[in-house]
């Protein structure tokens, strides 16, 4: 990965709407939002507000569910990823994703981290180097370095989740989407993931979906508040949490619904 950091936003969302083909219900309604370099944006909102769908539109993961229709544009470095001649596989390599529960594969720790690289047919030396680096960046290296060939399934939940982060990082994406990555973890494991996120946002654009306002407060630079498929408000974390403009935002942040 080379080249100077781009001038504008790495990822920009432009009038994005998502409609369910089955129920004709609008899941996302006309959302526009930019994700600048070196930022961690927390997408918060009550259950069912569409935040998970939103984050999945950002790397065309919605296509894996046949019943959604996406309109509007999502631009990665200025390229609309929904253009017909865009290769979704390349999109997902540049925009990685981590899920609510750890999704390690039934392979060794090393092979899990190397998964994306093997697909790219990288050289063994490059894979060794990149896997090690990814494990270090994900904050897992010290715990697994003596047993890289052990089964990844033997790791604890928190370790598995960090391994998933390492796997996403190994292909050096510019953007990493995190869909409630700590919702299945205990507080100690959550803390380690949050530390990892804070380190990562220096060189990867992070988009964190969370229903947990205090987590957003701890790690994010910016908060976007979604409600009923609409982007209600977006702003710096401090502004949003302390001086919300919209009454809905204030109600959510103060815990009156959620």
């Amino acid at each position: 990965m080379s080249g100077a950091a781009p001038e504008g936003p790495v990822l920009s969302v432009d009038h994005l709407s998502v409609v369910s083909r089955d129920s004709k219900k609008k899941i996302l309604n006309d959302i526009s939002l930019d994700f600048p370099p070196r930022s961690l944006t927390a997408v918060v909102g009550p259950s069912g507000c569409g935040k998970t769908t939103f984050v999945r539109t950002l790397n065309r993961m919605t296509e894996l569910t046949h019943s959604l229709r996406v309109s509007g544009a999502v631009r990665y470095l200025g390229q609309d990823i929904y253009q017909s001649n865009v290769n979704p596989v390349l999109v997902r390599r540049r925009i990685g994703m981590v899920f609510q529960r750890p999704t390690v594969f039934p392979m060794s720790v090393f092979e899990n981290a190397a998964f994306g690289l093997r697909i790219l047919h990288e050289s063994d030396a490059e894979i060794d180097r990149a896997v090690t680096e990814a494990l270090v960046r994900a904050g897992l290296w010290d715990e697994v370095k003596t047993d890289l060939n052990g089964s990844a399934l033997a790791l604890s939940g928190g370790q598995q989740q960090r391994l998933c982060i390492a796997r996403a990082l190994a292909v050096k994406p510019r953007v990493l989407l995190l869909d409630e990555p700590t919702s299945a973890l205990d507080p100690a494991a959550t803390q380690r993931i949050e530390q990892t996120m804070l380190r990562l946002k220096e060189d990867v654009v992070l988009v964190l979906v969370t229903h947990n306002v205090s987590q957003a407060a701890r790690v994010s630079d910016r908060v976007a508040f979604l409600h009923s498929g609409r982007l209600v408000e977006v702003g710096s974390t401090a502004d949003m949490l302390e001086r919300p403009k919209d009454p809905l935002t204030e109600q959510f942040i103060t815990g009156r619904f959620g």
Binding site: N59, M61, L64, V89, L90, R92, R93, G96, M97, F99, Q100, R101, T103, F105, P106, M107, F115, G116, R118, I119, L120, C164, R167, A168, V171
Partner: peptide, 27 residues
């Protein structure tokens, strides 16, 4: 196979056949 496992593989840039051979089949 849990959906997220499949999505994680495809999200890592695997083509469907690569997912089936490397992740799906072992499970």
């Amino acid at each position: 196979i849990p959906r997220p496992i499949r999505e994680a593989a495809l999200g890592s840039g695997a083509r469907p056949y690569q997912y089936i051979l490397k992740v799906g089949t072992p499970i």
